[in-house]
């Protein structure tokens, strides 16, 4: 990712190791998110189990990133781009770990719903899931390729994700009012939608950090936010 190499080559090796763990984590999170959505909309219980189990691998990678970054800070005293890179690595890993937890939670909820036909707003959920999956893939590519423009595109998408989530929330609410039998699956599905939206928030955080890593400054305006639903404002 760096334009030129360090005079001390083992320094490059250490930074590359950080990247490798992050990209491995990213790949696992992508697979988790895709699997969790499939488990939910297709009712595939086996995939749901796999998604839940892969969480420990993600945790292990995060632990490795933590150790490596601490070591680099202690032994190399990184500066400038190197400093931004390890700081970003640490934050990206923490965000990916949370994204994995949220995907695992979606998979767990999919197991509670008996058939996928019970899922209210199934198509809208699929669209939300696909959009957030796309953001996740893009932001990981931006990290891998040092592509600030792509990171900033991801960062701007957060607004449309918030709007999609709000629309789903209102639709589920309407479904539940119309038919009380929807209340039980609807409650789970609302949590699922919120989890997907939160995964999008984490992808946006990563986009911010990747922009900072590459350009040395954060994106230059306040992050766009979708209109909030009464009583459903984002938790900090």
């Amino acid at each position: 990712m760096a334009p030129t190499q360090h005079i001390v080559r083992s320094y490059d090796t250490e930074l590359e190791q950080v990247d490798r763990h992050i990209l491995a984590m990213g790949g696992l999170v992508e697979a988790q998110l895709r699997g969790a959505m499939e488990a939910l909309v297709e009712g595939d219980r086996e995939i749901a189990q796999r998604v839940i189990e892969s969480d420990t691998q993600i945790d292990e990678h995060e632990h490795q990133v933590d150790e490596l970054v601490t070591r680099v800070i202690a032994l190399r005293q990184p500066m400038a781009e190197d400093l931004r890179r390890v700081k970003t690595g640490l934050k990206v890993a923490a965000n990916l770990e949370r994204m994995g937890d949220l995907a695992a939670n979606i998979a767990k909820r999919s197991l509670v719903i008996e058939t996928p036909h019970q899922v209210p707003q199934r198509e809208a959920l699929r669209r939300l899931g696909n959009a957030v999956y796309g953001m996740t893939t893009d932001v990981l590519n931006a990290y891998r390729d040092g592509d600030a423009a792509l990171a900033q595109r991801v960062w701007r998408q957060d607004e449309s994700i918030d709007e999609m989530y709000n629309a789903i929330f209102l639709a589920i609410l309407a479904d539940m009012i119309a038919d009380p039998r929807v209340i039980s699956p609807g409650t789970h599905i609302h949590f699922v939608a919120k989890n997907i939206e939160r995964i999008g928030d984490h992808a946006t955080n990563i986009a911010e950090m990747v922009t900072y890593m590459i350009l040395g400054s954060l994106p230059d305006r306040e992050r766009p936010k979708g209109s909030s639903v009464q009583g459903a404002e984002e938790q900090p």
Partner: peptide, 19 residues
């Protein structure tokens, strides 16, 4: 300067990439 130098020569020097 040590977090976000504006010049690539500064960047290369302080990160040990010079030369």
């Amino acid at each position: 300067l040590f977090q976000s130098p504006q010049n690539s020569m500064t960047e290369d020097y302080i990160t040990g990439r010079f030369g």
